[in-house]
Design a protein around this nucleic acid. Structure first.
Lengths: 411, 411
DNA sequence: TGAGTTTGTTCAATGTCGGCACAAACTGAG
DNA sequence: CTCAGTTTGTGCCGACATTGAACAAACTCA
């Protein structure tokens, strides 16, 4: 108990320890390469706002970590010495991405840059128990991982439900027949570590994750205020990406846009108790019934609705139904524009098809019902990424590495 | 043209120059003192996450800049050596804050910590020309500044209109009889520099600025996702403060909540062409007419509505009118909660009075129409600051100093 | 082939911040 | 009143990321 031999450990320790620091610009640099905004070392230098010396050191360190490759030379055609190309390492670590939706589940390995390295085929769900389903998809992903022999840096899961923060419970997995409040994050974390993976695991809403993926690798690139609205098989989801970060609100429930009123004169009854909600007015079932079709059991509602739009759009009834949905969707988007003032809107699922069917009509409705200035003429684009929820699940799994490559990979 | 004598200046210069850097933690430290979150040097140390040595150096530098005072000792009652108190300098710089609303204008000098150092009485508007009005309020502020003899660090103006970014035009100054699109920022900047003040000048919407002020010094302290809704004399405004920063959207038009539909069964006609908008259903005029009163010309509508609530709330007709407005307001807030998922809501203007009249009713409506989890039980509080728009105008004027004290004050 | 341009590399200098030791200022018990 | 215990302020040194500048390398164009 001699003070000299046992100096107090709790003296004036700062919150940031040495280990988790690493080189300061390492994270931002990796994010620039990851999102394709730094194709060469020269633009990395200017994007980071540092000297060439620092950028060189940072790039070298990322290469030493096995995350990127620095490829010298390459005839650029421009004047001066060609800059080294920065590319994502094709033999680097991957993350395990998983998605569950009302029609099935899928697992994949995703590298930096949003590249899907390997994927399982879509599997059907045979059990309504969330622990079973999540266990299956994690197992499928772990099998992919074993086959690939690559290092795993994290795991992410996309579910078709709002996920409450900070608990990680699925609050409305209505179309999965899961119990309300199912602890999906806890289940996923358990299954991931149960599969022998000692990596951080994240769970999020599928539309949120899709928006994140589109922001980094798809139609949302470069946007600072990105609004994403999508309908999958049933119901409508929304997401907002602000300054490159997903905005999920204080408890993960932001952008639950399904119950915006878009049919003031009544409309279809919604399970929320109200009528004319975006959820029931613009989803695949709404299109089918508006077109006078009775949905069959052989295909998913989304597939049937898509088929209707692509093959029978000339039909007067189908076209009328589509225009009705477009008007309703436009009303909902205009309401969101007045509140959020995004600089870009991207649409996924059936909404994507509605946009491509008649982009002018949708844009006109949004502009007409938005109030002032340029907010009404916000660009509306279609999602461009395949499996964007899956890639989004990978994005959140990558995030710790993007924030602090040295710290996340040293463990 | 000798390369040796004239070295290229554009070599590998980084974007951050030496002058605008200053000590790294200087800005965060000043913000902590400014918002009252660092009353002593000890908590400054822990809040910044640095060592005592660094915190001491930072505090000393802020004192050398004349922004704060470091007062040694002060019997704290607790164990150990009492920590030096950090207080805002009462002889330091001030900013010029100005506000224009439909009833008049006011100028003030505001120090750090949101302290109003001096203020003009409320002045009536005699001219509908924005340049005249803004000129008058700047002149009044400049006179205050001359009398005080203190240094001016910036200027801010609050206007009752959406302000489009990046131009700074007032898009809906309807109740001021200003032309739509009046270049208020340009006018304000011109008048400020015309008054001999070589300081940055900022212009914003009054509710936005009020929300910022409440976040830093009032009912919004500590909130990470703050929603503010307020009605002044006519119309309803909203604001969102995310992580301490005002969220104005991509072109300054976010949170234009006035045209949310809150009366689905028709309701009053709004100038936007629709019916049942929040704007016309919950403003002072709506209360007066719902209570069967014809507004008189002697007082402002807000004052008359406030008077009605405070003196005649026992009246069946008045109470019924108030409850109708509360239900409509609750419907609007619930819609915003579903989209934004704030962790706190604060209400200003007449909405504040409606909340205090029957808080339970309002909270019940919001909870009933919000969808899941805790998002519906979000705390709803009344604004607490006097002149919060004025203090908010000061906040944006202070912002450059808070971001980089050394750079902002060295010029 | 050489001038001009742009980029990568090396290295010393700089400034910030962490870690440590010690002094200072208070409380509370005997 | 004194002394142990606790918490905070200060001075000093070292680690280290980053700058700045000089120089080499790689390409285009005349």
């Amino acid at each position: 108990m001699n003070g000299k031999e046992a100096p107090r450990a709790a003296g004036q320790v700062s919150t940031r320890t040495r280990l988790e620091r690493g080189r300061g610009a390492l994270g931002p640099a990796l994010e620039l390469v990851h999102t394709g905004r730094a194709p060469t070392r020269a633009v990395l230098t200017s994007e980071l706002g540092v000297t060439r010396a620092t950028a060189g050191a940072v790039a070298a360190e990322l290469e030493a970590l096995g995350l990127i490759h620095v490829e010298p030379g390459s005839a650029a055609g421009a004047q001066g010495r060609p800059s080294h190309r920065l590319v994502v390492a094709d033999d680097g670590p991957v993350v395990l991405a998983a998605q569950v939706h009302s029609d099935g589940y899928r697992a994949a390995l995703v590298g930096l840059g949003g590249r899907i390295v390997a994927t399982t085929p879509g599997c059907e769900i045979v059990d309504a128990d969330p622990a079973q389903v999540i266990g299956s998809v994690v197992e499928a992903g772990a099998a992919l991982l074993r086959d690939s022999g690559r290092r795993c840096a994290g795991a992410g899961l996309a579910v078709p439900s709002a996920v409450a923060e900070p608990e990680g419970n699925a609050l409305n997995p209505l179309h999965l027949a899961w119990p309300i409040g199912a602890p999906v994050r806890e289940i996923f974390e358990q299954r991931v570590s149960g599969a022998g993976l000692d990596v951080p695991a994240f769970t999020g809403n599928d539309v949120n994750l899709a928006a994140l993926a589109e922001h980094r690798h798809g139609a949302g690139r470069g946007s600072r205020d990105l609004l994403c609205v999508a309908t999958g098989h049933r119901g409508v989801g929304g997401a907002l990406v602000l300054d490159g970060r997903l905005h999920t609100g204080s408890s993960g429930l932001a952008l639950e846009v399904g119950h915006l009123t878009v049919n003031p004169e009544g409309g279809r009854a919604c399970h929320c108790g109200s009528r004319g909600c975006l959820d029931v007015e613009t989803d695949p079932l709404a299109l089918l019934t508006a077109a006078g079709r009775t949905p069959g059991p052989e295909e998913s509602l989304l597939a049937q609705a898509r088929g209707l739009l692509s093959t029978e759009y000339a039909d007067r009834l189908v076209r009328g139904a589509a225009e009705e949905l477009i008007d309703r969707l436009g009303l909902g988007l205009a309401g969101l524009v007045n509140i959020l003032n995004p600089d870009r809107i991207i649409l996924g699922g059936l909404h994507r098809e509605l946009l491509t069917a008649d982009p002018e009509r949708l844009r006109a409705v949004v502009a007409d019902r938005s109030l002032w200035g340029r907010s009404g003429s916000v660009p509306i684009l279609a999602c461009t990424l395949d499996h964007n929820s899956l890639v989004g699940a990978a994005e959140v799994a990558w995030q710790p590495v993007l924030d602090d490559p040295l710290g996340a990979l040293s463990t």
